[in-house]
């Protein structure tokens, strides 16, 4: 069956929409691409002009130079440690709060939900100096736990709202059914709600990882020798050669890209999919 050909007006509309989408995508993708190309080209290629849009000789030499630079490996380890502690804290505090928001109608529930979001209104740059002073007093300064605490505070609103969405999607009747079948409240949560919420909780965990992995300001202010990777890169940025910056940029952006690729579904839900 032949379908009637679409009207010119419709074609124009569609090409406008797709044209704009392509433009927006290029805006984001081209810098990524150039960073990636520079990170895997020989060091001298960065200074060539005009640049070849397609890399001629690919090499891991530049990346190897970055990874082997002084302080990079320890700061990667620091970053991973901070992220792990942050994920632990954020989920232990955030998931129960999300569960409570999803399951219970308690007085002040709406206010609590607003207050959770309101914490996002304080710029970390304003908080960082008093935080540094407080941490110095508490002996948490230049300590990975201190950085992880700040990252936890930054990630908590997301974790609470994401997990409450996750638990709302797990029908309460399932937990009640488990209770009538011999589970305690806690057992019903563990055997029914938790397994069903696990993919969503994993998304929240990975989201938290990216927040912590990419956070630079608090990490820079609150540490001196125990730098996380972004703080380390930032502190050496002024004195580094150009190709080091490209390699570092690429190294830091990759986890976020992988995350977005796997977690698209959950992020779309979070950002107005429902």
């Amino acid at each position: 069956m032949d379908r009637p050909s679409p009207s010119p007006r419709y074609l124009l509309d569609r090409s406008l929409v797709y044209g704009l989408a392509v433009l927006l995508a290029l805006w984001v993708v081209v810098p990524f691409y150039l960073i990636g190309v520079a990170a895997f080209s020989p060091r001298d290629a960065v200074f060539e002009y005009p640049k070849a849009l397609v890399p001629t000789d690919l090499t891991a030499e530049t990346m190897a130079f970055f990874v082997n630079s002084r302080g990079v490996i320890p700061s990667v380890i620091n970053s991973l440690a901070v992220a792990a502690i942050t994920i632990t804290f954020a989920l232990l505090l955030g998931a129960p709060a999300g569960y409570a928001l999803a399951r219970f109608r308690f007085p002040g529930r709406d206010g609590f939900q607003l207050a959770v979001l309101a914490t996002k209104m304080f710029p970390i740059s304003i908080l960082s100096i008093p935080l540094a002073v407080t941490f110095l007093r508490l002996g948490l300064y230049d300590n990975l736990i201190g950085v992880a605490l700040v990252h936890t505070a930054m990630a908590l609103p997301f974790v609470i709202l994401v997990t409450s969405g996750v638990f709302v999607a797990v029908s309460h009747e399932l937990e009640e059914a488990a209770q009538t079948l011999g589970c305690t409240r806690l057992g019903a949560f563990r055997r029914v709600a938790l397994p069903l919420a696990l993919p969503g909780l994993a998304a929240a965990a990975i989201f938290t990882f990216v927040i912590s992995w990419n956070e630079v300001f608090a990490a820079t202010i609150l540490t001196l020798r125990n730098r996380t990777l972004p703080a380390q890169v930032l502190s050496t940025l002024a004195d580094s050669p150009l190709y080091y910056k490209f390699a570092g940029g690429f190294f830091m952006v990759v986890p976020a890209i992988i995350f977005i690729f796997f977690m698209r579904k959950y992020l779309l839900n979070l950002w107005g999919g429902k």
């Binding site: 029908s171 009747e173 399932l174 009640e176 059914a177 488990a178 009538t180 079948l181 029914v192 397994p195 069903l196």
Partner: peptide, 13 residues
């Protein structure tokens, strides 16, 4: 007791 729920509440996993 044993109960049958309106939504069935069959465990999807």
């Amino acid at each position: 007791i044993a109960m049958v729920f309106q939504s069935y509440a069959v465990f999807p996993h």
